[in-house]
Simulated assay, not measured.
Amino acid sequence: MSLTAWLFFLPACFALNMAPGPNNLLSINVAARHGFLTSVIAGTGRLVSFAAMLALTATGLAAVLHASAWVFLGIKLAGAGYLIWLSIQLWRSKATSFESTKHEEASLWRLARHECLVAAGNPKAILVFTAFLPQFVDITQPVLPQFTVLGASFLVLEWIAIALYSAAGMWLGRWLTRADVRRWFNRCCGTFLGAIGLSFLLVRHS
């Protein structure tokens, strides 16, 4: 992979990282409820899933997954179901006051697990890693080192996206001082997550 190809990869990749999606929406919600640092740390859960997908892509196993319509369907249904479940949980969540929410005990493990499972159940992520990254690989050169560079770049840019969306969540948090506003915010996030989950069902296996 040439330096020119890598420089073309970076802005295209960052555009994908910054695209609104279920994980970025989770970062906004977590930051608004529990703070910037908690959201950034919880976001490492999605990095674990993406790192595993990158490893599968680099070893060629993702090609098998991409070729299997049944496996793809299973992941799609699981991802859609999990997002719809999260949506229902947000709709049913209690709209506690802003101060009590900020001081409540937040389980980093639970938040990171949500991020990990949402990322793992996203069929669009599979398509990104199997169709997007290989476009920047020079098959005349060793493939593994190139995937290592591309994968590391992707994860760093994803971490930056986590930080930016968490900062946006902190800004929104300043406006969520009333319980009724917090209820509206949670339900809006829940609605968007549910809509994204339903959109997963429309993703086709190519």
Rank of each mutant, 00 (worst) to 15 (best):
M1R: 02
M1Y: 02
S2C: 07
S2P: 11
S2T: 14
T4M: 04
L7C: 07
F8V: 11
F8R: 13
A12L: 11
L16E: 11
A19Y: 11
P20W: 06
P22F: 02
L26N: 01
I28Q: 09
N29M: 09
R33I: 00
V40W: 02
G45L: 03
G45Y: 05
V48E: 02
V48A: 11
S49I: 01
F50T: 13
A52S: 14
A58F: 04
A58L: 07
L61W: 12
L61H: 11
A62Y: 00
A62D: 04
A62G: 02
A63E: 08
A63P: 00
V64N: 13
A67C: 01
V71D: 11
V71F: 14
F72E: 09
L73P: 05
K76E: 09
G81E: 08
I84C: 12
W85T: 08
L86G: 04
L86H: 03
I88D: 07
Q89D: 07
Q89M: 05
K94S: 15
S97K: 13
F98T: 10
S100I: 08
T101H: 14
T101R: 14
K102R: 15
H103F: 11
E104M: 15
A106T: 09
S107R: 13
L108P: 11
L111E: 15
R113L: 13
R113C: 09
E115V: 01
C116S: 11
L117Y: 03
A119M: 05
A120P: 04
G121F: 07
K124F: 10
V128T: 15
A131Y: 01
F132E: 10
F136H: 10
V137H: 11
D138A: 08
I139T: 15
T140S: 15
P142L: 00
V143Q: 05
L144Q: 03
P145K: 02
P145D: 02
F147P: 06
L150I: 12
G151D: 12
L155S: 14
I160R: 05
A161N: 03
I162V: 12
L164H: 00
S166T: 01
A167T: 03
A167L: 02
A168W: 11
A168T: 15
A168L: 15
W171A: 15
W171C: 12
R174I: 02
W175I: 07
L176S: 04
A179I: 00
R182A: 08
N186G: 08
R187N: 02
C188N: 04
G190L: 03
T191K: 02
T191C: 04
G194K: 10
A195Q: 10
A195C: 12
A195Y: 13
I196T: 15
S199T: 14
F200S: 14
L201V: 03
V203R: 05
R204C: 09
